[in-house]
Design a protein around this nucleic acid. Structure first.
Length: 583
RNA sequence: GCCGAAGUAGCUCAGAGGUAGAGCAACUCCAUGGUAAGGAGUAGGUCGUGGGUUCAAUUCCCACCUUCGGCUCCA
């Protein structure tokens, strides 16, 4: 049995070999394995087209069949420099290896006298290309990528490949990709009429239609209802603030390029559209002298935020320039932090259960190699990072490490939710922040009469309602639960004869505050059912002669073939229960 | 922002240096239907925007806008 990593890594070398055959003047970057496959970066003498991938794939298959061995050997720096004398990227890597006094090793594919490809490589290969299943890989796509991941460097051409041990696994993966494409929120959003974009308004600035706005509001109301129960209170702050505020918070230095600048017509005063709520909330805290008796203060805010993202980074609702957060900032004493976070985690747990997300947390800590990226006392950072770990353990939450994922002011506990297709999305975040209160000089008078800094906990549950809508659409493939569906039932009269009865039933359901719509149309019943199914409406009520006679409704549940005839009261009860239980 | 691809009717797509076509949707009429597409007809487009080349550009060239696949970034 071959280790899949070895197979993928070997395939990346074979891809390089195939590219070398087609474009002998290629400069080679690196070719590591990744989740589900591998890639290799090249500086090509000419552009490669999607059609070329087929050809390269064929070359690789031939190489596999010819049964070339992979031979690894350690060589000296001098030898390495000689072998790769025309390879600028390889020479750069060799230089670094020699600086770090590391061994230089190469892997030769094929006959060492006349290899098909030789790469600078630390190894991890199959012994012979015959061990690779030629039907379990495919070249996936062509993309651009910076050399060594830095935008200061040259842009290389990256070829991605998928590789598995068996053809079946590859096919399963491709089917998953296909399913994900079908559920793409951009497609669903258009199809179900939830949101749209306009060239006149601008890229990354989504417009919510009545249905989309309803979902957005319902999500926010849900979160708000939990927050009220937990003693949180809503605040409201302006859309713009003076540059001064962001200078003080540290955001200006770090994120100025990502903020929209606003200039007054009547002065030189410089403002920014707010990219986050935290600095504003500190000013509400600072508006009064605070006593330890006042704490904790829990400010929530659903305001719109604006970030000037680079154009190439925008994508549907996943990455936008205008969005909101279910944001909260808790100002509390150090000894209140544990309890506050436990409450936040409990709320999060409830919300995840409502939507059926499995999840784990990521403890996002500092990048130890770059202390300059972070504000505040390193000892404090160590302490808080450890603290976060203890909170996870105490709450018996599954977590992983996220080195380098912290913000510049605090480590984060980020929730990663797994959707119906097994993909992970970052939703919630909890941050224990000692930096902001200090920078803004926030204090409270403690029991002993001393002035102390409060701790600021930053917390979001669904993260951003807009982004959450995206996740929900893909998670449910557009078939939203009844309680949050903009339209809960569509009512269809079999023929014009039942028009009055259908109208009556519609009115009755509307009186009960259900969101229903009557579709009297010139179309056949079959066609109207099809339309309602395509719109992913949870219930279709078909009303004909039989139903009118017995004062019943025939209920067709979304994507189910069999129907059920029940009394209107029973249907109301059913809906009420589902809405109540958030189903 | 960078590398690459693409923008034709509301949607999905075809087409070609001589001012455009299909299916679905829309609208009208006929059919009054029993659980995923009944039939007929009508209307709908400055071919993303602005320049240039040409007798002629939606087609060729340039710039910009937007979208997609990546890279980088993500408070």
């Amino acid at each position: 049995m071959q280790n899949i990593e070895n197979i993928r890594h070997s395939l990346s070398h074979l891809l390089a070999a195939a590219v070398l055959q087609k474009f002998p003047k290629t400069q080679f970057g690196i070719g590591p394995t990744i989740e589900n496959g591998f890639y290799y970066d090249f500086l090509l003498p000419q552009s490669v087209k999607p059609e070329d991938l087929k050809e390269l794939e064929k070359t690789i298959k031939n190489l596999i069949k010819r049964g070339f061995p992979f031979l690894g050997k350690n060589i000296t720096v001098t030898e390495a420099k000689k072998i790769f004398k025309n390879q600028i990227f390889k020479l750069e890597l060799i230089k670094e290896l020699s600086k770090e006094n590391k061994t230089v090793s190469i892997y030769i594919t094929g006959n060492p006298e006349k290899p098909v490809f030789t790469d600078l490589c630390r190894g991890g290969h199959v012994k012979n290309t015959k061990e690779i299943n030629p039907d379990a890989f495919t070249l996936e796509s062509i993309a651009g990528a910076y050399w060594r991941g830095s935008e200061k460097n040259k842009m290389l051409t990256r070829i991605y490949g998928l590789a598995f041990e068996t053809k079946k696994e590859l096919e399963a993966y491709l089917a998953l990709v296909e399913e994900a494409k079908k559920r793409d929120h951009r497609k669903m959003g258009k199809l179900l009429d939830f949101f749209t974009f306009s060239d006149l308004i601008g890229s990354g600035l989504p417009l919510y239609t009545p249905k989309g706005a309803f979902i957005r509001k319902t999500l926010n109301d849900y979160i708000e209802s939990l927050q009220i129960k937990a003693g949180y209170t809503q605040v409201w702050t302006p859309q713009i603030a003076k540059a001064e505020l962001f200078k003080k918070s540290g955001h200006y230095d770090k994120y100025r390029d990502g903020m929209f600048r606003v200039i007054s017509n009547y002065s030189e005063e410089e403002f920014y559209l707010k990219p986050m709520n935290c600095p504003q909330h500190t000013q509400i805290y600072a508006s009064q002298p605070r006593s330890y008796r006042d704490l904790p203060l829990r400010y929530t805010d659903f305001a719109m935020l604006y970030r000037d993202e680079k154009p190439g980074e925008l994508s549907g609702l996943a990455r936008v320039r205008s969005f909101s957060q279910d944001d909260c900032h808790i100002f509390c004493k150090e000894d209140q932090v544990d309890k506050e976070i436990d409450v936040a985690l409990t709320m999060t747990k409830e919300v995840m259960a409502t939507f059926g997300f499995k999840y784990r947390y990521r403890l996002s800590s500092r990048d130890k190699a770059h202390p300059e990226k972070y504000l505040g006392d390193p000892n404090r950072w160590d302490k808080v990072e450890k603290w976060a770990e203890e909170i996870m353990k105490r709450n018996k939450i599954d977590y992983c490490d996220g080195p380098g994922e912290a913000t510049f002011y605090a480590p984060k506990m980020d929730l990663l939710a797994t959707d119906a297709l097994g993909r992970e999305w970052q939703l919630s975040t909890v941050q224990i922040d000692f930096v902001m209160p200090q920078r803004f000089g926030l204090t409270y008078t403690d029991k002993d009469g001393q002035e102390k800094h409060p701790v600021m906990i930053h917390r979001a549950i669904i993260g951003s309602p807009e982004r959450f809508i995206m996740v929900l659409l893909e998670h449910y493939a557009g078939a939203l639960p009844v309680w949050i569906s903009p339209i809960q039932a569509r009512i269809l009269a079999v023929s014009e004869k039942q028009k009055q009865y259908a109208k009556k039933i519609t009115e009755k359901l509307k009186e009960q505050n259900f969101r229903v719509e009557l579709m009297n149309s010139n179309e056949t019943l079959g066609k109207r059912i099809r339309e309602a199914e395509l719109q992913k409406i949870p219930y279709i009520l078909v009303l004909g002669e039989r139903e009118e006679k017995d004062y019943t409704v025939n209920v067709r549940e979304r994507s189910k073939k069999e129907t059920q005839t029940i009394s209107i009261q029973d249907f109301i009860k059913k809906l009420e229960k589902e809405v109540e239980e958030k189903k």
